[in-house]
Design a protein around this nucleic acid. Structure first.
Lengths: 190, 190, 190, 190
DNA sequence: TATGAATGAGGGTTCATTCAT
DNA sequence: TATGAATGAACCCTCATTCAT
């Protein structure tokens, strides 16, 4: 009996992420994914139940990878400020180093295509970030605002700028990044 | 020769916006648009060259409508602060009153589908907003930051919160809106 | 606007009947039907909702045609004996003259593929036959047996012999037919 | 060298008969048969050359089993009448006790799928029945008719009624069975 | 202008079968 | 022998678009 080939699985995932990011989910056919992954269309169905399941699994996979990169080096002993800055920078670094994966997650961040269960599970990966937010509020470092507003003034602006950076409308250099960080930090801290 | 029927044109646009917003561009077939608009599929091709052209024209149309709503009441005589607040609130009002159109524009804001020319043209509609931004910088009201950073801390946060409001993850009430505005204003002003 | 082309409809039906009879429903693809009918596969969907609907419509059509042929010349004024003989002979004639259509209906006579509604409707076409059976019983010409037993000894034997005739296992000549008729008549009459 | 596992062979046959009877030959995939038989799809090809060969072998197997059941207790010493009645009843009993196998054989009785050789071979299993028929004619018990007509008025009616019994359109009780037998006997005897 | 008919290309998916272990 | 992985071909069906009126 043949073993399940991990390289094939990876090739399919990579092809799917690349194509979906470039052309969108609906315009990415299973055939095209197969062709890009150098695999028969039928082979995809050995690893994934169907197209939607493929999307969900890949989304979870990328989110997990992303979260582990972003939370790298963060632990309870760090001060709120240092921990937050580290996460913020890690997020930026991940996006810059993995532009395709970053674009992929952004495409489905607010999409109904990725089902709710899948999204909930993915949000658990980021629990340490939530803990930090709560600790910051307890320590009166952060303003007494909701998580959504907090995110809206910290990660949302960065995300927006990174997107424009990738689109070529903007060059997000070191200095701009620092400016942005400073404004964000001031916006949500007392 | 008969004139092109403006009602038919409008019906097609409305149908397209509704269906695209609900199901996405790729899952919205010309036949379905035709059926929803009570028109033959072939008739759509009397008004639009093809599907992509339909999307572009509709995108421009909605952007134009949106900009005229958002800039309503804004003129040079208003102080920077008053003008900005007015625009910010108008934007919120437009989104709340036109959830479908708002969702429609958001869907394509970062999409490769709407071609570059189309996007550039659409940004000209918001020139008064750009003028205001420059005036604010000249008057030293706004910080000396780029337009992109300015937007990232003013409209981007609001857009994010509105999306979460529509998704049901959040209730964006009067008080939260004020809090958000205050943080945004403080973030970009000296 | 183009008119719906009745020749195309007919060509599709003929092709479907022929292919389904020869190869069975499951082994008859829409593409093959299209090719045989000299039509695009998509065109079939202009006339039929889907493959199953195609089968149902064709089944009804053939049954209707068949019943009108079989009941031709039969009316209330004929004696039970003469009317029955006429129907019996008409049935034989129809089968011999329309071997493909005969085989087609036989293939689906006891099949769950043709849905119940469709079958019920088709059985109404043969109501005159049922009336004759009841009249025969009232007049004490026929034995006091159920319709099913009646059919089992009149049409079922003939059907079986016709099938063997077509399969080449048998030559169903005039004399054999008369013998069969006589046995059938004696079997169900007092 | 390991022996071929007879239990696996049997499991595959049972699964195939069940699925084919329930869903038809074309809608029964090798994978589904494998799954139902708790076996790998590839294993089926150890026992059968391909799908068609699987069908033929199973058909022969069931026919053989059926014939041995039907001819059980029949021998040369019995009178023609007693022997015939025994066979007729055995046939009915077999059908009632093995509805799936009965339905299976019926499905392919007039199908082009089971190839000619296969059918011929299967008919040899019933040779004792043929002998009885010839003896009955010699003894002037049976009318001087062909085997086909004989079958058409003895087994064909019973088969038809059993089918309707299974389809639920009819309840074939003891009394009805007797009536049917009597008519059949009278139809083919002097 | 306006239309329903018509279509080739392509969609996702399943299939019988073979491969490699 | 026995298997799960792997596959090209084929499945039904929908699509954006054009045709003919």
């Amino acid at each position: 009996m043949r073993h399940k080939d991990d390289k094939k699985n990876q090739a399919i995932c990579d092809a799917a992420i690349e194509l979906i990011t470039a052309n969108g989910f609906a315009d990415t056919s299973m055939s095209k994914i197969a062709k890009t992954a150098n695999v028969s269309p039928a082979t995809i169905y050995v690893y994934f139940e169907n197209k939607e399941n493929l999307l969900n699994k890949i989304y979870l996979f990328v989110k997990q990878e992303m979260s582990s990169e972003i939370l790298k080096g963060v632990d309870q002993n760090l001060s709120v400020e240092k921990a937050f800055k580290m996460i913020w920078n890690n997020y930026y670094q991940y996006a810059i180093k993995n532009p395709v994966r970053f674009a992929f997650t952004e495409q489905f961040a607010n999409s109904p295509m990725v089902d709710r269960i899948c999204k909930n599970e993915s949000s658990t990966y980021f629990k340490p970030m939530l803990d930090l937010f709560n600790r910051g509020k307890e320590e009166k470092v952060f303003k007494d605002i909701s998580l959504e507003i907090f995110t809206a003034f910290t990660f949302a602006p960065l995300t927006g700028l990174i997107k424009e950076h990738f689109s070529g409308a903007l060059v997000l250099d070191e200095k701009m990044l620092e400016t942005t960080y400073k404004i964000a930090w001031d916006a949500v801290t007392n």
